[in-house]
Amino acid sequence: MIDNTLFWSASVEDLAKGYIFNEDSGEFICLICNEKFENGIIYPSLCEGIYYEAKKAIAEHIKIVHQSMFAYLLSLGKRHTGLSDIQRELLHYFSQGISDKEIAKKLDSSASTIRNHRFKLKEKEKQAKVFLALMQLLDNGGVKEENFVAFHKGAKMVDERYAITELERKKILTTYFKNGVDGPLDTFPSKEKRKLIVLQQISTKFETGKNYTEKEINDVLKAIFHDYVTLRRYLIEYGFMERDRDGSTYWTRT
């Protein structure tokens, strides 16, 4: 699965670009799909007859494959952005350079109302800067709390159950995978936090970007636990995987 830790630990500047540069590997890594472009290699453009160096290639990749980083971040929804539906819609229109008057017509509103929304969004930006500064000072000067497990961006029903530290994760995996995480699952937990960690580990057995048939899913899950049907159902229910309407194709969430 996609390394969500990479996404959530990226700086604001890197999130805006949509990629990071790993100095150790010399690779530019897409924060959306984890596609990698190695520095020093020339890549064919998605437009025929053009070639780009790695940095230019990943920028084109984000623009063409993912539309834009702006569109992707906006699509994450209120849980991740803190924006209401109307604020997200307005930001979409603002990004297109549409005037307040034109937006007001589209939304059956008034230009003054749109201007008021612009003002509130600017205030929200200021608050976000202060909050980021506070968190940075807390990290630099205080006692650091344990790192929390990063879950996939498609996680459903996110609440306190997802507040799991890395230490808790290791203990849970040791308890339920007695022969190691590459071995079978001893029992399937009933408690929510434990269930989430076990499902997250199981989901790593599937490749991101690859489509699976139900039989292929079952074959992988049978090697992990005898009740593979339950595992498959919970992987879907908790958003670790998706499937099409007829259940013929499955894929992991990023």
Rank of each mutant, 00 (worst) to 15 (best):
M1G: 06
T5E: 15
S9K: 15
A10L: 07
A16D: 14
F21C: 13
E23I: 10
G26P: 09
G26N: 09
G26A: 13
C30D: 11
L31F: 11
I32Q: 05
I32W: 06
F37G: 00
N39M: 08
I41D: 00
I42W: 04
P44E: 07
Y51T: 03
Y52Q: 05
A54D: 04
K55R: 08
I64L: 07
I64P: 03
H66L: 04
H66F: 01
H66I: 03
M69F: 03
G77L: 04
H80G: 06
T81G: 05
G82E: 03
E89V: 02
Y93I: 05
S95M: 06
S99A: 00
K105H: 06
S110P: 11
S110Q: 15
T113K: 10
T113P: 06
H117D: 10
K120V: 02
A128Y: 07
K129I: 05
A133E: 14
Q136E: 14
L137C: 13
N140Y: 11
V143G: 13
E145V: 10
G154M: 10
A155F: 04
V158R: 13
R161D: 15
E166Q: 13
L167P: 10
T175S: 14
Y176T: 02
N179W: 12
G180V: 11
V181N: 11
V181H: 10
D182L: 14
D182A: 14
T187C: 14
R194K: 15
S203K: 02
T204A: 03
F206S: 00
E207Q: 08
G209S: 04
N211A: 07
N211M: 08
E214N: 11
K215C: 09
E216S: 03
I217Q: 07
N218F: 12
I224G: 00
F225C: 05
D227C: 02
D227L: 01
L231Q: 01
L231E: 00
R232D: 00
R233A: 10
E237C: 09
E242F: 07
D246S: 09
S248F: 01
S248E: 00
Y250C: 00
